[in-house]
């Protein structure tokens, strides 16, 4: 038992404390002086428009992807459960994007979205619609990335929803049917309430993973001589984690970057605590 404990102390607890410590210093990796500055980094943060841009963007990633994933996941899972054939086949195919490398699929989508010569624009033009900038337009880039996140996470949601749906005893539904309830009423009154723990679990999981969105942005909007920055044109896709990464490893401001990780930690903590409250209540009920 000693070894795992030491491991957690050394690889998780101590670095976490170190992160708090670093966040209270002006810690530029290129200079030897690392003065203690108290909460200065946090004050600077509050006045940093790029931080707020990243925070707002991250909020939108969550606000778009989580409801979309839940709604589509539940819809697809219900459809799969309600057909009698090919259930395994559907489940498997919808799951494929989830198991493939995020980096790889990000590049595939970058190519689909490509403005001049990408297939999506060619299809739009073929049916007489105007071409879209997608990732290279500040107004569309964030939605384009969010769509890929939903696309990739959908399979996981379907699997978990299917497991949840299967745990609902079929007799409940049959009884309701005999009472004359229609399909929508059954869904609304029986399926949905009984799926509540599953929904909360998936919502929290989706929220936390969207709060940490990184690889998609790094691979879909960074680089290219046109944009330069990591967070897309005019920081339109910049997320908190991408901002942390660019501050820490491109601009070497370790103290300032750590301050943002502390903020992210606080947000995730709140989400987790809320989840525990909600879940516990559900289970008692």
């Amino acid at each position: 038992m000693a070894l795992p404990l030491l491991f957690f102390l050394g690889v998780r607890i101590y670095p976490a404390l170190l992160a708090f410590n670093v966040s209270l210093h002006e810690w530029d990796i290129m200079s030897r002086a690392r003065p203690f500055v108290g909460l200065d980094n946090f004050r600077q943060l509050a006045a940093d428009p790029v931080f707020w841009k990243a925070a707002t963007n991250t909020f939108w990633y969550v606000a778009i992807t989580v409801p979309a994933e839940l709604a589509l996941g539940l819809a697809v899972a219900s459809l799969i459960q309600s057909v009698n054939k090919f259930q395994g086949f559907y489940r498997t195919v919808y799951f494929i994007p989830y198991i493939t490398s995020t980096v790889a699929v990000s590049w595939v989508w970058r190519w689909l979205y490509f403005k001049n010569g990408g297939i999506l624009n060619q299809l739009l033009l073929a049916v007489g619609l105007p071409a879209q900038p997608f990732l290279s337009g500040p107004a569309q880039a964030l939605y384009s990335i969010a769509a890929v996140v939903v696309w990739q996470a959908l399979g996981y949601q379907v699997i978990i929803f299917l497991a949840g749906l299967e745990m609902i005893p079929p007799t409940f539904k049959e009884a309701a049917k005999i009472d004359g309830a229609n399909a929508w009423q059954i869904f609304r009154r029986i399926t949905l309430p009984l799926l509540n723990p599953t929904i909360v679990f998936l919502a929290v999981l989706g929220t936390i993973s969207s709060l940490q969105i990184f690889a998609q942005i790094m691979n879909m909007t960074s680089g290219g001589s046109g944009q330069g920055d990591l967070g897309g044109p005019l920081n339109s896709t910049l997320s908190l984690v991408v901002y942390i990464y660019s501050l820490a490893f491109y601009k070497f401001k370790m103290g300032y970057a750590s301050a943002i990780t502390v903020v992210l930690f606080a947000v995730i903590l709140v989400v987790t605590l809320v989840q525990m409250k909600v879940l516990n209540r559900r289970i008692e009920y």
Binding site: A19, L264, F265
Partner: peptide, 13 residues
Amino acid sequence: TLMIPTEMLIIPW
């Protein structure tokens, strides 16, 4: 430690 996101640890690591 489940509460600590990896993002917070990468700089100390």
